[in-house]
Structures are given as structure tokens and as C-alpha cells.
Nucleic acid binder design. Structure first.
Lengths: 226, 226, 226, 226
DNA sequence: AATGAATGAGTATTCATTCAT
DNA sequence: CATGAATGAATACTCATTCAT
């Protein structure tokens, strides 16, 4: 398989002209298509170039090696996802804790619906030598969540906040991620969001709010449960 | 001919003789060692044979292709794990629901401690075309869990039992699996088991049982928040 | 299309304009720098163009192919060297044969000190299909040396003048060339010149001239052994 | 050109069986043939394998990389040559200094006649990261020559023995090496040997022996000149 | 004239698999 | 049964060269 190697994160040549930018786009599209449809084994530089209708020479003009191509694919996807999550940045002032939790989960769900196939394909890729931005993304996320928890410290029964963050993040990520391929309809219908909200609230606050059970994802009556 | 993708899961030849069985064992041991120590990239048939002190010819006597070798490795590991889980088979008569849940989680944890390195190595392996036994294992597990839930139907607030099973299994698996590499000490100390137990009970029963708070490893009084 | 082998030694275009001449110069400088610093492997047309701050398009405007670029580099270096050797052109009237020989060697040494690094780099280059000017240079040199020998025919004991010229040229070239990288200090101090002078005179005249022993750099009396 | 790299001096697999040995031989023969006939540019692993009538797989079974193939080619050639030179090992007790010198030159000539084409082809190869045995060979040679000179110290007029060894070795090597392609007939006839002998003796002893001039390479009358 | 995007044949090397001994 | 020599399609990547703008 001859996988990872150097890591040289970005395009060899800043796509200055329009033609360049177009070529880069074509290549990345082809790369994504192959990865999704045929898996990492079929993801060869020659095949990508051919599918993109471009010579390998051109591919290597913009991506110094296979790794960088995959890396850029990830970077773009992560970027697209992060757009869906911006609301998380200022969540403390939300009306209620439950609302915050639900919102966060909804964001996560939306994130996984951006391009579920690519998301899955990327996640099945061999570990890419821990890209730094990947680690930084994880850290930022954990920090945000922790901040919210701290703001609601009194509501939270979990003894160890860090551990709680860890558990919550893993659980939500795993459930949503898997559901994106195995239970797509539940993901889209919001049923899964309801359930995961209950899962987290129960764990964090020590009690299931009546509202959660009675009025799933209803916009109304959200101030009632304190 | 670097092809793969031929799924033919089992040995070409039933290892009837003792010598055969020994050879197979040697090969599998070598395979596991390589996979764990040097990753999938180093996992080549020639290297496995050499490490095992066996000719590739012999390796191919027992494993028709690379895939089958990896498959057998998984099968054996799964088997070893399933031994830890047998208690789950007849759990209904356990003293309390909480006890059952906690026991199940403890089993999962133990399962992940069987050979964590191999476990991780196997999980980083390229997807092996959904082996049927893998699917069957998942089904069996889901069925068991569902049976328990049904026996305790009245205690459970989750509206959709199947969905609840799904959520619970993904969450537990993900948390424990990740913790096996990222939070090993918490896994071993039992802290994580406590928390996951709370996570599940809160979700399933709609309230945090006093027992959970007074339970084995919880050191202190968390009575402040009702 | 990594082809090479197309010998077409000179620029596509007589650099008529000043700008052209400047560009050609820049390119050749970059080429020399790369060849010296990083060797022939790094000597790629793209790299040369980039280092020169010129587009490959422009490079190919002046040099029809890689070979011609390298060829021109050699031609220029040889030219520079030949300037050091002009005195050889009219050497017959020199005071003594020994003096002539010594002078010729000194010139050769100076020639190798013109740009020793480039000289060495060029000599480690893959053989460039015997450029014609290269052959002509060799012929001219041989002719000059032979003329001197003929003028001193009576002093020379070697039976075959042509062979003597051949031997002398190879020997001097090899010694000086190697010394330029392996014994640079001896080259510069003149010790090597002394010795090579003795080498040639002994061979050509059949005796070590007293002068050679008493010559410039010889410190002592070596008269003991006659 | 993508030349040198690791250096891993010997075959990957000791040719135990006859078949192996034969294959290795075939490959090396093909390699030599290509190098001689078409030069280093044509010396590609695929071409060598094809010419040898062997799959590249087989080639790489015995030579871990291109470098090692070229290296082995050199090693074998050097070995073959060194056989011609063994007499040099015990030269001190030779009848006369002249005889010793002549013998050494004859050996050098014979060495270059072992396979002149291959010799030349190898010498035009890119540097190959100074193989250690190459350096050791040079050292051994220098040491031998110096030992002879020291044994004859009183006959030698050269002030610096080490420098004399250096000059002598470069000169002889260069003359003989070039003559092997440019003056093969002189090399074979012995005329060149005569001349080079005179070159060295004149330089080293300060006088041309009458015998050398009167009786070139005649077997007789070699004791006469002391 | 100058630019630089595009080309694609070619290069070294790997590795799953076969089969004669 | 075992061996290990042999296979060859496939891979990542390079670089001299062309040509539309």
C-alpha cells in the first residue's frame, strides 16, 4: 500500500491564474469521487489524474505528493464543516442549558450531513501522521465544550469536567458519525438528535427534563424547564 | 499483483495435523506482531512468512490470500473477546438493572483490555469488505442487549428500543475503544466505568439512581445537587 | 520526455539585444551555480530557470535543449581557460627548453585554478557526445606541444614524438586535474609544478638538468646522488 | 537522472542455489552489456532485467536497488583486475628497480586490458558515493608503491616520497586508462609500456638507463643495468 | 519576447501470488 | 508437505519539452 511519507501540507504552486485554480478544483473533485466510490486502495495518483482528465504531471504541479492531496481534501472538508459549527463559538448566553446542548448536537448532525460519503471515506483513510490542524481542531472543540460546562457548573453532576467532556465528545461523535451511514433517516428526521440530547442531559444534569420527553425539538416551551 | 478484495475468509485446509496447527499459530503470531509493531504498511505476506520462520509457500498453504490471513487474525481476536462477554448471555436474572448495565460495561472494558494493541492495530486496518461473521457478531450483540432492555421495559423511558440499543452500543463502544489508547488509566481504575454507567442509566431510566452515586468506586458525596 | 542526446551545441538565437545577452548570462550563471553546489542530479532545466529568475520558456528560447546549455557552459569555461594558455602559442623562442616546459606547466596549473569547482563539476558530467570544439581544442593543444618538441628535436630522446606528446599531455592533465581537488596546497605552492617539470624533462631529455635541481623552489642541493 | 542514494553493498539474498547464481550472473552480464554499449543513461533497472531475460522482480530479489547493482559490477571488475596485480604484493626483491617499475606498469596495462570497454564505461558512471572498498583499494595501492620506493630510497631523487607516489600513480593511471580507448595498439604492442617506464625512471632516479633506450622490453640483458 | 501551465513517457521500486523442484 | 525463485502489474514521482496566452 506504501502509505504515508513526508507531509508537506500545501500546494506546490499557489494557483494564481484561473486555469490553475480550475485544475486544482478538478483534481480535488476527482480525488473525492474516487475515494468515496472505490475506497483508499483505488486512490492512486495516476487514477486521480486520469479521472480528472489531467496529466499526472499537472497533478504533481499542485500537490507535491499523494499525502498532500489527501491532506488538502481533508482540510477543505473540515473547513466546510467548521462553517456549520460557528454558532458553538458563543453558546454560553443561550437561554437554557438544554437548548445549548441540543443546538450543539444539531450542529454536529448538520456537520455530518455536509458530505456524509466523503466524511466516511476520509475517516477510513490510513492515519495521516496526525496533521497539526487536526489536533488543533480537536483541542478547540474540547475547549469550547468545557467552557460551556463551566458556565453551567452548578447544573452538572459529573465529578470530573474533563472526563465528562471526553465522554460526551466521543459518544456524540461516534453516534452521529455511524448514524450518517447506518441510520441516515433518523439523523435527518431529528429523532436521533432528540435521543442524543436526552443522553447527554441525563448524564450531565442527573435528571431527564420533562420537556425533553414531552416536546421533542419543539421550538416552544423551552424556557419552562430550568 | 497488489489486488486484495477477494474475501475468502477461511483457511484453504483444515489444520488436521498438529504440525499444521502449530504452523498456523506461528504465522498468526508473527502477523499480529508485525501489525502491532509496524502497522499495516509493513504487513506483507513475505514479511509475515519470514518473521514466522516459514516459507511463503507454506503461508499460502494455509491462507489462500492476504485477506484471509488478516480475517483470521480478526476472527481469533473477536473470539477471545467474546469469551469475556459470555455473562451477558443470561443477564436478565441479575439483581438490578443498574447492576446489569454496570456488568455489561465492565465486560466491554475487559474485552478491550484483552489485547489493546492488537485491537487498535486491527481497527486501523483498511475495511475488510464487511466480513459476514463480523456482521453476525454485531447482530448477536444487539439482540442480547435488546433482550435485556425488553425484560426491563418498564424501567426504560426511551421511546424506541431499537434506537436506544443502537445509541447505547455505539456510545459505549466508542468511548471504551478510544479510552483504551487515550485514557488507559481511567479505563483500568474504573472511573470510566462509573461514568459510562451513569451515562447509560440516565438515558435509559430517566433518572440517576441513588445506587449509581453510592456505588463502588464513587468516593464522595455528590449530594449537593439533588 | 527525458530523452537527451541531441547535440545541437549553440544557442537558438544570437543574443543580439543586450537584454538577451544579460538573460543568457543569468541562466548560465545559475546553471554553473547549481552544477557546482548540488551536482548533475540537481541540474534540471526547471531548476536552472527558477534559480536564474527566468521562466523555462525563456530558457528554451536561448537553449534548444538541456544538452546545449551544458555544452555552452563547457565552451565558456574552456574559453576562459584558453586565455591562460595563450603564451604557449609562441613558445619556441623561450630561453631554454626547461623554461618552456616549466612555463607550460605553470599555465596548466593556472588554467585549473580559474574555477576549480566548476572544472570539477563539469568533469563529473556524463560524457557529452564528444563536442567538436572539444576535439578541436585537444588537437590544437597537441599541435602546439608538438611544435615545441620539434623545435627542440635534438634535445629529445623519445623515439616517437607523437607518442611523447600524448603521454606528456595525459600525465600533466591528470596530475594537475586531480591535484586541484586532492592536493590544492601543493598546486598553489608550486611544489607540484617543480615535480612535474622534473617528470617531463627527465622523460623528454633523458637527464635531469642541473637547472631543474637548482631551480626556483628547490631549496637544497640534491647533488649527492648524481 | 536520479542517481545515487543509499548504498547497501551486497545482494539481498545469498545465491544459495545454482539457479540463483545463474540468475545473478545473467543480470550482471546484461548490466555490463548495457552500460558498455549504451552508457549510463540507458542503464535502467527495467532495461537490465529485460535484457537479462528476467523479471524486474527477480532483479530486485538480488539487488536491493540500482546502486547495489552498479556497485557489484564494479566490485567484480575490480576483483578481476586485482588478480592481475598480485605480483605487486612482493616486488621488493625484484632484480632491479627498473625491472620492478616495468613490471608494475605491465601489470597496470594488463589490468586495463581485462575488459577495457567495461572499465571505461564504469569510469564514466556518476560518483556512487565513494564506496569504502574503492578508497581502501586506492590506499592499499599507494602503500604498496611507497613500500617499494622506500626499499629503493637511495636510488630515488624525488624529495617528497608521498608526493612522488601521488604523481606516479596519477600519471600511470591516466596514461594507461586513456590509451585503453585511444591508443589500444600501442598499449598492446608494449611501446607504451616502454615509454611510461622511461617516464617514471627518469623522474624517480634522475637518469635514463641506457638499457631502457637500447633494449626495450627485451627479456635479455636485464641484469646488466644495475 | 516572455510566461508558466500542461504534458506524458519514463524511472525505481514493491508485493501478492504461483509453481517447479 | 515445504521451499523459495520467479513473476509482473502496479505505484509514486520526475523532468525535458511544448505551446496557448
Amino acid at each position: 500500500m506504501a502509505t504515508h511519507r513526508k507531509i508537506q501540507p500545501m500546494p506546490r504552486k499557489r494557483p494564481g491564474q484561473d486555469r490553475s485554480r480550475a485544475t486544482v478544483g478538478t483534481i480535488l473533485d476527482a480525488a473525492a469521487r474516487i475515494l468515496v466510490k472505490d475506497g483508499y486502495d483505488a486512490f492512486t495518483t495516476n487514477r486521480v489524474a486520469e479521472t480528472a482528465g489531467v496529466s499526472i504531471g499537472s497533478l504533481y504541479q499542485y500537490f507535491p505528493n499523494k499525502e498532500s492531496l489527501l491532506g488538502e481534501l481533508m482540510r477543505r472538508h473540515t473547513l466546510a464543516i467548521e462553517n456549520e459549527l460557528e454558532a458553538l463559538a458563543a453558546p454560553v448566553q443561550g437561554p437554557s442549558f438544554e437548548h445549548q446542548v441540543r443546538t450543539a448536537i444539531e450542529q454536529t448532525v448538520r456537520a455530518h450531513l455536509v458530505d456524509p460519503d466523503l466524511h466516511r471515506a476520509l475517516s477510513e483513510t490510513p492515519p495521516l501522521g496526525k496533521l497539526d490542524w487536526e489536533a488543533r481542531f480537536a483541542e478547540r472543540t474540547a475547549a469550547r465544550v468545557k467552557a460551556v460546562f463551566e458556565a453551567r457548573r452548578s447544573h452538572i453532576v459529573a465529578p470530573d469536567l474533563d472526563l465528562a467532556v471526553y465522554i460526551v465528545l466521543r459518544a456524540v461523535e461516534a453516534i452521529v458519525h455511524n448514524a450518517a451511514t447506518e441510520r441516515l433517516s433518523d439523523l435527518k428526521s431529528g429523532v436521533l438528535t432528540d435521543e442524543v440530547t436526552r443522553l447527554l442531559l441525563g448524564y450531565l444534569t442527573g435528571k431527564t427534563t420533562a420537556a425533553a420527553r414531552a416536546a421533542p425539538r419543539s421550538t416552544a416551551s423551552r424556557g419552562s424547564h430550568r
